Simulated scan of single mutants.
Amino acid sequence: MPAEVPVLDLSVSSVELTQQLCDIASVSGDEARIADAIEASLEGLGHLTIVRDGDTVVASTSLGRAQRVIIAGHIDTVPINGNVPTRFEERDGQAMLWGRGTVDMKGGVAVQLKLAAELTDPIVDITWMWYDNEEVASDLNGLGRLARNRPDLFVGDFAILGEPSNAGVEGGCNGTLRVHVSAHGKRSHAARSWVGVNAIHAISPVLATLASYTPREVEVDGLVYREGVNAVGITGGVAGNVIPDLVTVEVNYRFAPSRTGAEALAHLEELFSGFEVVQTDVAEGARPGLDAPIAQDFLAAVGGTPAPKYGWTDVARFSALGVPAVNYGPGDPLLAHADDERVPLAHIEDCERGLRAWLTGPDGR
């Protein structure tokens, strides 16, 4: 017997809607119930055309406006760890909603859903996207799948991703590259180590390079991006009495969007010259996208000073398709995935107010 579809009430405040969404468990790979709930909540709204692709839900207006904006948010979370159901509690004089998904990123999803339902006459056409499997491997990402299946839905002049950004605008994002850096040796009995070559000892210059590395700060289109090159894993060793013949350090490079993935790889190959360097994963960064006139109108409406996004987000997917994109959502990204994940209620309200002001224009229609 199919599970009952949870009911979302889009008439309540965006704060209350955030709690409703967070209390529907939707760990990556298990988003069907929340996708069903989102789809059901939008059915019957005459100004929206609904498309379902797996557990991704798309709702679009077709008002014949001169410009189209894409506004997206992912509906999955990392695993729950005793932090659902959510609760309201004050911290440091701020009213907070605590629990998994409050920051990453159901507060943003709630704002988007409420506005999708209420804005029947926006000044631009809007394509709203709520997608699955953002928190896991890139090849499972619902936004990527949707782009492959329905590229027509990605035609737009500007995109906003509701990732947590402290209710401010964060432009573009760093790229990310992972490589395996390996040293080879020769096995021997540990009692006769002079017969072998210890690969773990041989990798020490790589570790020294990482420990002394000074990451760049790079200005791109007026925003300063901080890079980072770090060891995130190390494997080696055979047994307690064997000199190891292989050791591999996994290195993650977060590179500014002024560099391509190929240029980032070339940098690591130069940095670890003399060692085997094998790329295992790469995701291109995205330039800020703030120079377009529509982006300037958005900034003027929501206010504040834009900042760079240091972590990789799906704005890069839009950027790769030629659609300038920014991050704009409630919550502190430093609390994303934390067991004490919590969002200030004011962040949710501010993001709703900012988006509503921009999408309805100065006349507030």
Rank of each mutant, 00 (worst) to 15 (best):
E4Q: 10
L10P: 03
S11R: 13
S14K: 01
L17R: 09
L21Y: 14
E31A: 06
L42V: 02
G46D: 15
L48I: 13
T49M: 08
V51I: 13
G54N: 07
D55R: 09
A72F: 05
I80P: 04
N81D: 08
R91Y: 14
D92E: 15
G108I: 08
A116D: 03
A116L: 11
E118D: 14
L119N: 12
T120R: 14
I123P: 02
D132Q: 10
R145H: 10
R145K: 13
V155N: 05
F158W: 05
G162E: 12
E163T: 01
E163H: 03
C173I: 09
V179L: 01
R192K: 05
S193H: 08
V195E: 15
S212W: 06
Y213R: 13
V224W: 08
A231S: 15
D245V: 01
V247Y: 03
N252M: 13
R254A: 10
S258M: 03
R259P: 04
A264K: 01
H267V: 06
E270G: 11
L271N: 12
F272C: 02
T280W: 05
E284G: 02
A286S: 15
P293N: 07
P308L: 01
Y310Q: 13
S319F: 12
G329Y: 10
R342P: 04
V343D: 00
L345M: 12
A346S: 12
H347W: 11
G354C: 09
A357G: 09
